[in-house]
Write a protein that binds this DNA or RNA. Structure first.
Lengths: 186, 186
DNA sequence: CTCATATGAGACATCATTGTCTCAAACGGA
DNA sequence: TCCGTTTGAGACAATGATGTCTCATATGAG
């Protein structure tokens, strides 16, 4: 018997392949009748909204697990750098599951999700700002840009693995070093 | 009288705001009747395909204008670096217009566009490989990853300007320096 | 075993979009 | 001015997706 979570998991998996899959397709992907799918989620929007919420949950959980707030408040460069390291690896793991949410045009357009996303960005940016203040990250760019850069690299990482250009196991190191030190030879 | 190019321009502009706009909406945006729109483009797919083609044209034109092939063949580090600089600025200008094409799920899924896109990636990657061979870019990562990283930063740049976090005029410098030297303090 | 519950299959109406077609009006060059 | 061409508005059928509903069946707890 497929639980609500099973359905969400199957939908997530499938939407990563085809972000525009219909309810019928998603039902099949979950091994469930279309009627049953609608019993769990009144509308497609409901389903997407729930997935969006879960992806934001994961994002928030990663910020918590890495203790971004604690690191930001610590003013300890080494702790902040370690936190950034940890955070990036967690984000990469999150996008293994919710990668499609990075660019989905519904999710990035739903008002309440957007509002919550803004608050998470705020939390993340506090870490970047602290990193800048303690000399860990360069201070000559807006801290929000660093957030965007990380986001962009997550999109890039997803594509790179998808295209088979980078093995998944190399991603953490690759993304971290690209983010921190860039592509130039040293 | 709206020419075909006018319509394409209006559609491009509008799709950057709403990537899922219907033919009716796109017709209105172009100041043209829906029937007229269909006289120019038999189907929505035709329209999208044409836009995809044009965005690839721009991409190719930027590779040409920056003479990526010439720089790659030159084995001259300074020329290669200048070429990268030039290329990034051109890509940013291109995504001012065709930014939506970066993440649109139709465009990134059409077979012939995809094939042509692959060939352009190939050309671009030759430059990255040459940059690695001449010590301009780090050689400890797959050259294709550098292509993905640039792509990701373009997506990030688009969002950053869209969100008002970075003024457009700062983008060239910001993206270039982030790509080359990363976010770490030096 | 029995019964309450959950399920799958399918019928159904609805809706938005698409693509075609017609026609009257506007336009533009000769 | 006149006439051929292009246009916009709207009607139209077709399509695919959505959401609701029914009913027969399967399942699982007691």
């Amino acid at each position: 018997m497929a639980t609500r979570d099973d359905i969400l998991a199957a939908a997530t998996r499938h939407l990563n392949v085809d972000p525009r899959a219909s309810m019928a397709v998603l039902a099949t992907a979950a091994g469930v009748g279309r009627a049953t799918l609608h019993r769990h989620f009144a509308s497609r929007e409901d389903l997407l909204h729930e997935l969006g919420t879960r992806s934001l949950d994961r994002w928030a959980a990663s910020l918590d697990a890495a203790d971004a707030a604690g690191a930001a408040a610590s003013s300890d460069p080494e702790r902040i750098l370690a936190c950034l390291r940890d955070l990036l690896a967690r984000f990469l793991a999150d996008s293994d599951d919710f990668g499609f949410a990075l660019t989905d045009s519904y999710l990035t357009g739903a008002d309440d999700l957007l509002a919550r996303s803004d608050r998470l960005v705020e939390r993340e940016v506090e870490l970047y700002a602290a990193a800048q203040a303690t000399g860990v990250l360069r201070a000559d760019v807006p801290p929000r840009w660093l957030g965007h850069a990380v986001y962009g690299l997550l999109v890039a990482a997803r594509e790179a693995v998808r295209d088979g250009d980078v093995p998944r196991r190399d991603l953490d190191t690759l993304v971290l070093s690209t983010f921190l030190t860039g592509a130039q030879s040293r």
